[in-house]
Write a protein that binds this DNA or RNA. Structure first.
Length: 264
DNA sequence: ATGGCGATCTATGATCGA
């Protein structure tokens, strides 16, 4: 029997990579993810701490932006081979929200979907247009004969079970029927929503706001997702959220979400 | 209905996030 190797894939919205660096390094050391997507770097390209990550054992590529947004991909003991940056479909869109690479034999798309608040309004329109563009790119990835993951902060609460208090989010862009339909359309291409697939009826959150001890009380949202194409979904072993990271000192408001997969 | 917190620069408040 040939032994299968397993890989841990993780997505983490760090909410400022330089202010979060000690937190990020501790997490990498403890959890040792093989492939990582980071969002909300909030740093220009020249401010990305590639040397520190390299010293911690991770090769990286990144698409930075001053103050806002920004995405990166990391490979444990390997350099990601970039295949794209910037979401196709609108040459006027300068926001850094998409990066794509081959890492450990997996095609990885790291995404940071727009928040979209307040809605209605131009920010919500931009969110929906961006998600349409993502669906277009995802369609060309889903049926590849290679393992593919699209992971990141989708800024969509897929269902009532994915928010601690659905009523209080009725007017929120993350919870609008249009946002949820856009996410649903994406899944219908053939992607597996890893956390929901593994957790079934059980609640699992990836974000808790900074107010009223919501993290400690586990009053959160599930908005960070890992979508696996059919080739990769066959190897899905387990999934989870490293909630301990959210309970550290000076944490991001998100925790890393992850899957473990076997690769033939 | 609002604001609560935290990060960033425009910096001692304004803006954004979710």
């Amino acid at each position: 029997m040939p032994r299968k190797r397993t890989l841990k894939l993780s997505t983490f919205n760090v909410n400022g990579i330089n202010s979060r660096l000690p937190n990020l390094l501790e997490w990498l050391e403890k959890e040792k993810p093989d492939i990582v997507a980071l969002q909300e770097l909030k740093a220009a390209d020249q401010a990305f701490p590639a040397d520190v990550l390299e010293a911690a054992g991770y090769g990286s590529i990144w698409h930075g932006q001053q103050s806002w947004n920004g995405v990166a991909l990391l490979g444990r003991h390997t350099a990601p081979v970039e295949s794209g940056r910037g979401l196709p479909g609108d040459a006027t869109d300068k926001q850094s929200r998409y990066i794509e690479a081959a890492i450990h034999g997996i095609v990885v798309a790291g995404i940071y979907s727009p928040n979209g608040n307040p809605q209605p309004g131009p920010k919500f329109d931009y969110k929906l247009r961006w998600m349409e563009r993502l669906a277009h790119r995802a369609r060309s990835l889903v049926d590849l004969p290679h393992p593919v993951v699209v992971m990141g902060d989708f800024n969509v609460i897929p269902a009532d079970e994915d928010v601690y208090d659905p009523r209080s989010f009725r007017k929120d862009a993350l919870f609008q029927p249009e946002s949820r339909r856009a996410y649903e359309r994406l899944l219908k291409q053939g992607w597996t929503d890893s956390l929901r697939h593994v957790f079934g009826e059980k609640r699992i959150y990836t974000f808790w706001d900074y107010f009223r001890q919501h993290a400690e009380r586990d009053r959160g949202l599930r908005i960070d997702h890992l979508l696996l194409n059919p080739v990769l979904a066959k190897g899905l072993i387990e999934a989870g959220v490293d909630r301990w990271v959210r309970l550290q000192e000076k944490p991001s408001d998100h925790a890393p979400a992850w899957v473990r997969v076997s690769i033939p």
